[in-house]
Design a binder for these strands. Sequence first.
DNA 1: CATGAATGAGGTTTCATTCAT
DNA 2: GATGAATGAAACCTCATTCAT
Lengths: 222, 222, 222, 222
Amino acid sequence: MAVTKSLRWERRPDTRPQELLDAAIVVFAERGYRNTRIDDVAEAAGVTKGAVYHYFATKEDLLLRAIEHYHDRAFGQIDQVLRHARGPASARIRLMMRKAFGGADPTGRKMTLALILQSARHDLPEAHRQWLRGGPIKGWRLLASLIEEGKRTGEFRADADAEVAARVTISGLITQIVWQPLAVDVPELLIDDDRLIDSAVELLLHSLWPALVVNTTDTKEN
Amino acid sequence: MAVTKSLRWERRPDTRPQELLDAAIVVFAERGYRNTRIDDVAEAAGVTKGAVYHYFATKEDLLLRAIEHYHDRAFGQIDQVLRHARGPASARIRLMMRKAFGGADPTGRKMTLALILQSARHDLPEAHRQWLRGGPIKGWRLLASLIEEGKRTGEFRADADAEVAARVTISGLITQIVWQPLAVDVPELLIDDDRLIDSAVELLLHSLWPALVVNTTDTKEN
Amino acid sequence: MAVTKSLRWERRPDTRPQELLDAAIVVFAERGYRNTRIDDVAEAAGVTKGAVYHYFATKEDLLLRAIEHYHDRAFGQIDQVLRHARGPASARIRLMMRKAFGGADPTGRKMTLALILQSARHDLPEAHRQWLRGGPIKGWRLLASLIEEGKRTGEFRADADAEVAARVTISGLITQIVWQPLAVDVPELLIDDDRLIDSAVELLLHSLWPALVVNTTDTKEN
Amino acid sequence: MAVTKSLRWERRPDTRPQELLDAAIVVFAERGYRNTRIDDVAEAAGVTKGAVYHYFATKEDLLLRAIEHYHDRAFGQIDQVLRHARGPASARIRLMMRKAFGGADPTGRKMTLALILQSARHDLPEAHRQWLRGGPIKGWRLLASLIEEGKRTGEFRADADAEVAARVTISGLITQIVWQPLAVDVPELLIDDDRLIDSAVELLLHSLWPALVVNTTDTKEN
DNA sequence: CATGAATGAGGTTTCATTCAT
DNA sequence: GATGAATGAAACCTCATTCAT
């Protein structure tokens, strides 16, 4: 994609909404939807309130379009990654999880959407539900299906609860990541992102692998 | 049923604050702190706004005192349970997790405080931090210490990441439970509480046990 | 008047209103009418809000009756003093002014009524007017009449403006005294009461006495 | 008169704050700070509450800025007048007092700030203190210094209490003027402004001149 | 396009007053 | 008599939204 943004800044009208969405996401993530004033977003984007209303009908619309705008970047790629991935389920799970939780958001923060929408549960119930469906739920369904696949191929224990494993892992990771920005005030929250994700995945896999016991000790008795 | 309610109000000086706290917790959980008007709480308690201010200085005070009031019931018992528990780490982990996530809140809902405080992250940052420290963090620290213990006794793999295991399990479960009330609108969220907790614990244990399950040797001894 | 208050405190029912009035005057003077809550008065009197409403219909009524109660003590005596006084106008003016401004209020503060009512100009216009009529205006009329008397007897200059002299002296003194409590924060306000009053009176008299020049210096030339 | 007022409001960005301050001063003087609602000010300025908050952060801010705005007009000129004045102390005192109390406020009322701030003694103690320092106290210090000067040159009696003379005259005049608007209800209060000021000054001078008027000797020289 | 002045609904808090006990 | 719980009318302040310029 050619970068047309030249050094001497050339105003392209359709740049403004983009900037507003960027600003909105950042500010909403920082202060929460309810505690963010339109003025805050405008200021962050370097314009005034009125300009925001040029492009977005309401505050809610602003958030909704921002979510929409970032949703793909945040979730869309996962399917792709998986679609082209081959190999054992464990490998594909590692791939998926790294893709899902590994990279930073375009805004610098991770899980920005989660951060915003968790705070907006009571303010924008519909958006919150959409996010749940398109984000966490979709995520754990995908993960669960990979686990089920592993179970089918015998890679994983047949008696493992794939659904719960997927749910807890996904929502646990989301929550941990969403809490990371609070670590400046609550240092006990701090944990290295890579360690968090990698360890979580390895633990998940360990919980799924058969006791690969082959009951070795038993054999000697048989 | 005899109506003893007098013209304006029925005087129950001792129970009123209690009732207000109960009402507050319920309403705050339902609508979120910010979206709850003092009138809502008052109405839920069957009084008027003024009565709330008779007992609580501010809206924030109301929530803070409600949190305080329910905190012990929500978290205090766990330590106790563990203090008196003996046996292998796995057993004590099962015990702890059931105690932590099993019983219903006195308000009917589970994890009510989590629900409220998550929504108040930007409104009452200090309360939110307190909750994190006294709730989730305390929870996963306890769980992590049990895991470490299991590692020391050889019950668990020495190379398991106890910290991450504890964090993801605890925050994953909290999140899942907090999302349960939304299942009326997003049915995909619905999951049986007992299954959730039990499976999560078993998965956790599986992820911790050594791959080579030596305890099968025990069987021959029986 | 026999003091029946015994050491072991004997509650006489008709003591309560008195105590409330005392408390009211003090608290109103301290915080102003509008900024004084009924609770404050009650607390100062060692009772609860309800008790105040036993004796006084409204907050306004409380103040009105307090004013009424203290008005005589504050102003009533002046007439008497003057009625029995004889001698030159200047002497009677000194007498009157000492009586009017000299003694401390029963509440410890001077000019308590002025203090209260000045702050209540917009809250209780009628009471304020009453106070003006019964206090300052009455005061300067009395003073003016003494001055006129002095003018008639030749003690004072016939061309002195008795009305203005009386007005400025009386309201100036009231104002100065009413501001004295603020001297803790604005030390420049502080002035000794006796000096204030005595000097003011002497200045007043000097302004009234004829230039008793007899043009002495002129005589040598004539 | 052509009505140029558009549907909702007429845009006069530059004058609006000014108009609000003007309205504020008037309304505050009329009803007192505490008894004035922001709506009252807004209404007086022909706008709504929100517009006031567009320019002023709080009700207190509104008053403070109004005071600031009018303070110079009310007090600032006096120093100037005196700085350029020469001649005997008595002449300069006359000059100062006319300047200080003579002209009408820009708002039509005289001593508007005094009127407002006296009522706000308990509501805005800090503003009240500022006013005392910048207004009355400054006034009587200036007057006192002129008197002292007159004493030094022998124009005035050396034994006159300059401080008290200045205090009583200044605060007496302020008080009288502040009470003038009440004359509609309490006619006894009414007095002509010029007479009040001129007589007060003459009385002050009479009280300061030596009893033995030596300047009669001057006459023979003419 | 953009500005920012103005609106007004909505929510928190205060406190005089009432009244069951 | 006294208490203090409860009421409810204000009043301050916020901020999404509108709209003239």
